[in-house]
């Protein structure tokens, strides 16, 4: 997994609540058997018309935000389907950090498995970052995972929380499966106990 340490980049504002994973990556793109190449279809139905032409109003089509690396969004971001294609598409587009007042649980987990940092902040702070993001390409934000701090384009600092284990994995680009396999003996012990106490399972 790609490491996440510190990121300075353009933040795109998407002031919508309940952005669901069907919006992030519509179903027709779930038929792939690969993880890569989904960035071009990120937010497909909001981003393109039926003929495949860009809809100029959509934030990621605006010249200022085409290279956005941070997304600032409304409450309950990533709700709906468990499709990991959603974070794959976000990452493939080039976005490494999503900031919102809250996230849906599965999406939130999926982000960490793909080197994306989701940050939940109180509404007032998201509002402030949304305003900063609306300034456009010259207003670059910094997300510093080690110090758990966002710096706005005018130097304002906003601290954020992150689970220590997930922070450790992100900062070091660690593979979960490798870590778990180190605990193989504990899994073996659990399984043999399970076979005795609940053999039907």
């Amino acid at each position: 997994m790609e490491k996440f340490e510190k990121l300075t980049g353009i933040a795109a504002p998407l002031p919508m609540v309940n952005v669901d994973t069907d919006m992030i990556i519509p179903k027709q793109f779930l038929k792939t058997i690969k993880r890569s190449g989904l960035g071009v279809n990120l937010f497909d139905e909001m981003r393109y018309d039926r003929q495949g032409n860009e809809i100029p109003d959509f934030v990621l089509n605006q010249p200022a935000y085409r290279d956005a690396e941070i997304l600032v969004a409304g409450d309950n971001f990533g709700c709906g389907s468990s499709r990991e294609h959603a974070p794959w598409a976000i990452k493939d587009f080039g976005i490494r950090c999503v900031i919102a007042p809250s996230f849906a649980d599965i999406f939130f987990n999926n982000c960490f498995k793909n080197g994306i940092l989701p940050i939940a902040l109180p509404q007032e702070q998201v509002d402030l970052l949304m305003k900063d993001a609306e300034k456009g390409a010259n207003a670059r934000m910094t997300v510093d995972l080690e110090n758990q701090e966002i710096t706005t384009s005018d130097g304002q600092k906003i601290p954020f929380d992150v689970d220590p284990f997930r922070k450790h994995c992100l900062m070091n680009g660690l593979d979960d499966i490798g870590l778990t396999l180190e605990k193989n003996a504990a899994i073996d012990t659990f399984e043999s106990r399970l076979n005795q106490t609940r053999p039907w399972m």
Binding site: R35, S82, R83, E84, P87, D105, I106, N109, N110, K113, N114, D163, F165, D176, I177, L179, T180, L181, N184, I187, E191
Partner: peptide, 22 residues
């Protein structure tokens, strides 16, 4: 509960998941 594809791979390989209690 539902899981993402990375977690599907994790369960296939280890029959476990890394979780925090809700």
């Amino acid at each position: 509960h539902g899981i993402g594809t990375s977690e599907v791979e994790h369960v296939l390989a280890t029959q476990t998941l890394i979780q925090k209690k809700s």
